[in-house]
């Protein structure tokens, strides 16, 4: 698995995590590859079975207090336990003083040693959130992502079907573009999909016949969004008279993106159809369904009740038995 180095972590999060480098360890053997962290209290005490060496090791007040209770010899032995395996990174929290023996070991074993002034628990939360993002499963999709009334609509369909034009139409109508043509989607725990644009492309768009345009420059900041949760996939397809299209909407059809179930709708395109208006309707219908209502099911319910009353008034036998 691809990982990041402690140097990268420091470069990217020095300010947010209040990090300083104590030992840089340019020849570190293990990269950081998991977002979970470990507090190695038990390893220091000598119990190294099941020691989660591949995680970032956080030395907080408890660990440091424990080391303080030991004699110099015992302390050396405790730290040796910790270094039985290669470690990706050690971080001392709360700005605690660095034990000289710890620094020596980090230098000789080439394990990066960082220190933060933050308290241990908030530090772990923020570090984990950052690492979760770094290690989130992600993929690149061909499509456009637009925030329509706060609902993230992912437009999918063949090249040239009009995804960009639909996105442009929606921007004109006051909605916000997240990404066009290339959408980078990542999965956040527990099962949320976040889409964003490629850093280079930003909010630029290619419109056939016109060329590259910059939505941010053209429509301003309110027309764009950096990231948005992907909530509904809208599939644009060429109208096929033989294909069965959804006419009721009694149940949600779902597709899977990075293992997350996402409802989708298929919109067949015919000349003169206003896809932007339909997209707005899809977004609003999603909001209505999310609030626990289903217009199709409601109507079916009303219809069934009406038929029941009708049947009570004219029981089957009275209508005329054919047997």
């Amino acid at each position: 698995m691809q990982g990041i180095s402690a140097a990268q972590l420091h470069d990217e999060r020095r300010q947010e995590l209040d990090l300083e480098v104590i030992v840089a360890a340019p020849n570190a053997r293990l990269p950081i590859t998991v977002s979970d962290v470990n507090r190695p209290g038990l390893a220091l005490a000598g119990f190294t079975e099941n020691f989660l060496y591949e995680r970032i090791q956080i030395l907080g007040e408890t660990e440091m207090l424990y080391l303080d209770t030991l004699s110099a010899n015992q302390r050396g032995a405790a730290l040796d336990h910790l270094f039985e395996c290669d470690l990706p990174c050690l971080i001392v929290s709360k700005g605690l003083p660095i034990e000289p023996r710890l620094q020596e070991l980090c230098e000789s074993r080439q394990v990066p040693l960082l220190r933060t002034r933050m308290s241990t628990t908030p530090f772990i939360h923020q570090l984990t959130a950052y690492l979760n993002n770094v290690f989130a499963p992600r993929m690149t999709l061909h499509g456009s992502l637009v925030d329509v009334y706060g609902v993230g609509l992912l437009f999918a369909g063949d090249s040239g079907i009009g995804k960009s034009e639909t996105a442009l139409d929606l921007v004109e109508r006051g909605h916000r573009l997240v990404a066009d043509d290339i959408v980078i989607v990542s999965r956040r725990p527990p099962s949320i999909l976040i889409g964003s644009s490629n850093e280079l492309l930003g909010h630029r768009m290619e419109i056939r016949g016109v060329g590259i345009i910059d939505i941010r420059e053209m429509f301003g900041i309110r027309a764009t969004r950096v990231r948005k949760r992907v909530e509904v996939e809208v599939r644009l397809v060429r109208w096929d008279p033989a294909a069965p299209y959804e006419r009721l909407g009694l149940e949600d059809r779902t597709t899977s993106i990075l293992g997350v179930r996402v409802p989708y709708v298929t919109i067949p395109l015919v000349p003169g159809k206003n896809v932007a208006v339909l997209a707005e309707v899809v977004a609003m219908n999603h909001l209505i369904k999310s609030s626990g209502r289903n217009p199709a099911a409601d109507l079916d319910e009303r219809l069934k009740m009406m038929m029941q009353k009708d049947q009570a008034a004219f029981p089957v036998g009275d209508v005329g038995d054919t047997e």
């Binding site: 009721l248 009694l250 199709a296 079916d300 038929m307």
Partner: peptide, 19 residues
């Protein structure tokens, strides 16, 4: 014809007919 299914001409039945 006579409607013979329990639920009558409800939404799904209407959909099948229309299809």
């Amino acid at each position: 014809v006579r409607v013979v299914n329990e639920l009558g001409l409800h939404m799904r039945a209407a959909n099948v007919f229309v299809e």
